[in-house]
Each structure stands twice: as structure tokens, then as C-alpha cells.
């Protein structure tokens, strides 16, 4: 059985796919905890237990590996968010979504931030392909939030003239900025405050 390698188009055997997945999983963990810039290929080799030739068989270098990590993390985050937001149609549902994110981040005292947002702060400068992939992922995530806001509009909980795309982007920025403040403070409180303030504004629009 073979599967396609999304980056070089080569067909992979089941064993090759497993090796590739092991490299990406190790790189994902290292880059999440240490940051993209501070993670070396030697560390990825050590953590995944694969040989240098195996790594270079799957990836041309660090940039290619970073792009694979973005795809991997993106898929995971979008799947989680689709499940969490796909059927939300009330402010209360949005608050439950907020509670889950804050609670999960609190387990680690906010130390590592959003898996996707952390990648965005580090790779946006030097790799246009990585930047575009991240931009598409965030657009997809914001689309899920905009969907919730449109359902709020349909039920009359949000006025029809409110710009759902703009509010969804503002809410995403509050979430991502909140993650970053929590990461620096090693305390989840600023993240909770930031999302709460953004949600309070959205809720207030229906009261006018």
C-alpha cells in the first residue's frame, strides 16, 4: 500500500509514511515547546529516532519540515475547531468554546500558547509558502467563527448590519493576542480577559 507525500509528490510505502509521520510528530512537539527557530534538525533526528538519510529522503531541509508541521498542526486545529464551533448558534455556546480553550491552556499555565498561532509568529517572515499556508488555515478558522456569528444573526441575537467577517477576525485576534499575553505572563488570565471582552462587545451589539 502506498500514500502520496504531499510535498514532493513521491508515493510512500506504508513504512515510509510511518517514518515520515514520526518525523513530523517529533518536529511538531519540539517546535511547539522550543519554538521553530530554536529547533534543530539534529534534535528532530534524536527525538524521532530516524536516520539523517531517512529525514532527507522525506524533507529537503528545515523549511520543508516546517511546512509539514504547519499542515499537521493545521489539520488538527481545524478539525478540533470544526467540531467545537460547527453547530454553535448561541452566545452561550461561544462562551463554552471560550471556556474549553482557556481551560486547556490553563493546564500548562499558558506557557506554550496556540499551536498554530506560535507557528505564525515565527515563520511568517522568511518562508512565503509557509506564510500562505498559515494564512489559509487562519482564514478557515475565522470562517468557522463567522459561521457562528451568522447563525446568531439568523436567530436575531446579532443585528443584521453587523459585519460577521470583521467581528470574527477581531475575535480571532483577541484569542491569538490573548494566547501570546498568557504565554509571556505564564498565566492564563490575560487570555481569558481578552476573549471575554471581545465576546462582551459582540453580545452588546444585540442590546443596542
Amino acid at each position: 500500500m502506498t500514500t502520496a507525500d504531499s510535498h514532493n509528490g513521491r508515493r510512500l510505502t506504508a513504512r515510509g509514511a510511518k517514518t515520515r509521520a514520526r518525523i513530523v510528530a517529533a518536529a511538531t512537539d519540539l517546535m511547539y515547546i522550543k519554538g521553530v527557530g530554536a529547533t534543530t534538525l539534529d534534535e528532530v533526528l534524536a527525538a524521532s529516532g530516524v536516520s539523517k538519510s531517512q529525514l532527507y529522503h522525506h524533507f529537503d531541509g528545515k523549511d520543508a519540515l516546517v511546512r509539514a508541521v504547519i499542515d499537521h498542526v493545521g489539520e488538527r486545529v481545524i478539525e478540533r475547531e470544526r467540531e467545537a464551533l460547527g453547530h454553535v448558534s448561541t452566545i452561550r455556546g461561544l462562551r463554552r468554546w471560550r471556556d474549553a480553550l482557556v481551560q486547556n491552556n490553563a493546564l500548562r499555565h499558558g506557557a506554550y500558547g496556540c499551536a498554530l498561532g506560535s507557528l505564525a509568529t515565527e515563520v511568517s517572515d522568511h518562508d512565503a509558502l509557509a506564510r500562505q499556508a498559515l494564512s489559509q488555515l487562519f482564514t478557515e478558522w475565522q470562517g468557522l467563527l463567522a459561521g457562528v456569528l451568522r447563525r446568531l444573526q439568523d436567530s436575531g441575537a446579532l443585528p443584521p448590519e453587523a459585519s460577521t467577517d470583521q467581528l470574527a477576525t477581531g475575535l480571532m485576534a483577541a484569542l491569538q493576542g490573548g494566547y501570546m499575553l498568557a504565554q509571556t505572563a505564564r498565566d492564563v488570565t490575560p487570555m481569558a480577559t481578552s476573549i471575554d471582552m471581545a465576546l462582551a462587545h459582540i453580545e452588546s451589539l444585540s442590546e443596542r
Binding site: 498561532g117 505564525a120 509568529t121 511568517s124 517572515d125 506564510r131 498559515l134 494564512s135 487562519f138 482564514t139 477576525t169 477581531g170 480571532m172 485576534a173 483577541a174 484569542l175 491569538q176 493576542g177 490573548g178 494566547y179 501570546m180 499575553l181 490575560p190 487570555m191 480577559t193 481578552s194 471575554d196 471582552m197 471581545a198
Partner: peptide, 20 residues
């Protein structure tokens, strides 16, 4: 609290703006 949101908006907003 408004200041926390403004600072988060500057942080998160600039990240989203830089990637797009």
C-alpha cells in the same frame, strides 16, 4: 480590561496581518 484587549488586539492582529 479594555487595555488587555487592546494589547491582545495589537499582538494577535499584527500576527494575522503579517501572515496575510
Amino acid at each position: 480590561k479594555t487595555a488587555v484587549l487592546i494589547l491582545a488586539a495589537l499582538h494577535g492582529g499584527s500576527t494575522l496581518s503579517q501572515i496575510s
